[in-house]
Amino acid sequence: MTQETAPTRNPQFAVATDGGLDAFEGLHNAVPVAPFSVNFGDRSYRTDEISREDLFKELQTNPQHPTSSQPTPQEWADAVRAAAGADAVEPEGTPPQVLAVTISAGLSGSRNAADQARSVLDGIDVRLHDSGTLSAAQAFQVHAAQTAALRGESLETALEWVRAVQQETELYFTIETLEYLRRGGRIGRVQATLGGLLNLKPVITVDKATGTYTNVSRARSYKGGIEAVGQQVTRTYGEGTPLRVGLLYGTVREDTDALLEQLKGRHPIVWSGAVGINPVLNVHTGPRALGVAAAPGKWPWERDTP
């Protein structure tokens, strides 16, 4: 299902983001990315250098638990320059503007790296926006920003749309095992809420106040976890509310089909897309995982349209 937008006009700004993004073909997510890296001991792969299949193979065979690394300031500078379309800017010219949408600062130091990159980006006006989230929910915000750019809207209008999408979108996911979150040191409040009972399948979200993971529900089986994700979406928005949903999967694509069918039984689905979780994020979820970013009704810029 594709997302339509108004005809492209002369953009007033450009958009860049980081490897916290899970990009959807049906959204305007094709923007320059400051990549994360996944590390197995002394071997390191950037987001675009390792496939999901190769990652799963490494997880099964490599005795070393992988870690992830945020983009460097230089990698952010490269992404911003690519977005601006200029390695140099004429002194007399108007500096190009770039809106950099980052993964939650509560989950990564990427925003700080983007801020540091400004020191080597003379001649480019960089505005930072902390998405407060990641993955498909970050993709929704990038879509809002890029839609504004393609329509020739101002950067300030883009930020209004992005912030509206940020407030109305929730991200929920469940995982087959908490072991990968535990090994990566990101289990935090999730573990505390579960009381250390690692056999339970959590439904995890990103707390809007802190930008960190927290548990909102639990189930006794992975299948039950998928059902609990769908139930949480309905509790949040109310049965019958039209939804936009960005679905995420690890090793089993059919998990998203099960969730979408469940949601269709309670909501009109006005947009949906599905994508495999990117390798760097999969390091923390483990191979089998299921997630969804959900938001109600039309996009903010469509609401005044009959």
Score class of each variant (00 low, 15 high):
115 D>S: 09
262 Q>K: 07
40 F>N: 02
156 E>L: 05
126 V>L: 15
237 Y>H: 13
288 R>S: 05
98 V>H: 04
137 A>N: 06
182 R>W: 10
240 G>A: 02
286 G>S: 07
122 D>V: 10
302 E>S: 11
75 E>L: 09
46 R>S: 15
151 R>L: 03
5 T>V: 07
115 D>A: 10
27 L>V: 08
144 A>M: 06
216 V>L: 01
210 T>I: 12
224 G>C: 11
75 E>P: 04
122 D>I: 06
236 T>I: 06
1 M>C: 05
268 P>L: 09
134 L>C: 12
136 A>W: 00
3 Q>D: 13
254 E>Q: 14
131 S>C: 13
148 A>L: 05
213 Y>P: 03
168 E>Q: 13
17 T>S: 14
58 E>R: 14
299 W>P: 07
102 T>G: 00
64 Q>E: 14
284 H>M: 12
250 G>A: 04
237 Y>G: 07
100 A>F: 06
278 N>T: 13
197 L>H: 07
76 W>K: 03
297 G>R: 08
141 Q>T: 03
128 L>H: 10
187 I>P: 01
200 L>S: 08
251 T>H: 09
302 E>Q: 15
285 T>G: 07
30 A>L: 07
210 T>M: 02
304 D>V: 00
176 E>T: 08
303 R>Q: 14
274 A>K: 14
202 P>V: 09
79 A>C: 10
224 G>P: 06
292 V>T: 07
200 L>N: 07
269 I>A: 01
135 S>F: 00
232 Q>H: 14
79 A>W: 00
3 Q>P: 00
146 Q>T: 14
246 G>A: 12
115 D>Y: 06
269 I>D: 05
231 Q>L: 12
145 A>R: 04
59 L>K: 08
271 W>A: 14
203 V>I: 13
291 G>E: 02
272 S>M: 05
129 H>W: 01
44 S>F: 05
66 P>Q: 05
289 A>Q: 01
246 G>D: 11
15 V>Y: 00
119 S>W: 02
237 Y>C: 02
254 E>P: 02
156 E>N: 10
256 T>A: 12
261 E>Q: 15
22 D>E: 11
244 R>Q: 15
257 D>C: 00
137 A>M: 01
44 S>T: 15
239 E>P: 01
50 I>N: 03
293 A>K: 11
223 K>V: 10
109 G>H: 09
100 A>C: 15
247 L>V: 09
137 A>V: 06
260 L>N: 06
138 Q>I: 01
45 Y>K: 04
190 V>L: 02
